[in-house]
Amino acid sequence: MDMTRNAAAVSLPVPAEITQIREEIEDVKTFYFRFEDPELERSFPIRSGQFVMCTVFGAGEFAVSLPWSPEQDRRHLSVRSVGKVTSALHGLRVGDKIGIRGPFGNGFPFAELSGRNLIYVAGGIGLIPLRSSIVHALLHREDFGRIILLYGAKSSRELMYRPNIEEWRKRDGFETYVTIDRPEPGWDGETGFVHTLIEKANVPIENTTAFVCGPPVMFNAVIGELSRRGLKDDCIISTLERHMKCGIGKCQHCAIGRTLVCTDGPVYTYKQIKTLGETI
């Protein structure tokens, strides 16, 4: 990994215009945007798994993981309204401006994943930070073994990126399993917790890397199941979310033990996470 990183915008947010807003699920909206600066609009290099700092003018700034892929894919952010700044973002309309700093963070280690099976396991909005990687992997389908998505949510109303999922389902060489916690009228898919899909999908263990993102309870259940089947801790990767102020390793808000999520992460192997000594 290169020691000195560059980002398109380190300290000053660069303005971007919201071009489209989509309501994903309750409290989660996706904001498509384009940069004011044509140079940035043409080239804003990212890696899957990175994040940006997003300024909502007049409200503040927050860290948000990137769901778009490094290749041709519309730039967008999917954000849950949880605090003062994110709810202000939800109040914006098409045409409004936001500010972007970044991209920051290490990203997924794709250089090391060539030829491996990729298992994506996501719960609820845990699909957001994995989306970029999924799109990227599908664009380079020939580089990998099996690619499997195991996705679960409490109910069908809480499934993210449904249009994407429908599209992915139709793709050859991409195995998609979607479950909701409890049966509901009109749902003919799987029910039960997401870790039960591991069995159903007959997930391979040899030469496999699993991407796991979701709420702590789901995360622990999935890890437990994968470990039980023999997947090694350093073959499980996740992205951590922490409160951040700077994004560049200075403010220390995201420090966990010896690591800074903003610069050392947000992508960690489970082996690394276990040594951090804090909750996920």
Partner: peptide
């Protein structure tokens, strides 16, 4: 700021790690 404050590492809408 100080890392010794309880709210230092908190995340919006989430638990405090």
């Amino acid at each position: 700021d100080s890392c010794s404050f309880e709210g230092y590492a908190r995340m919006a809408g989430e638990h405090n790690p």
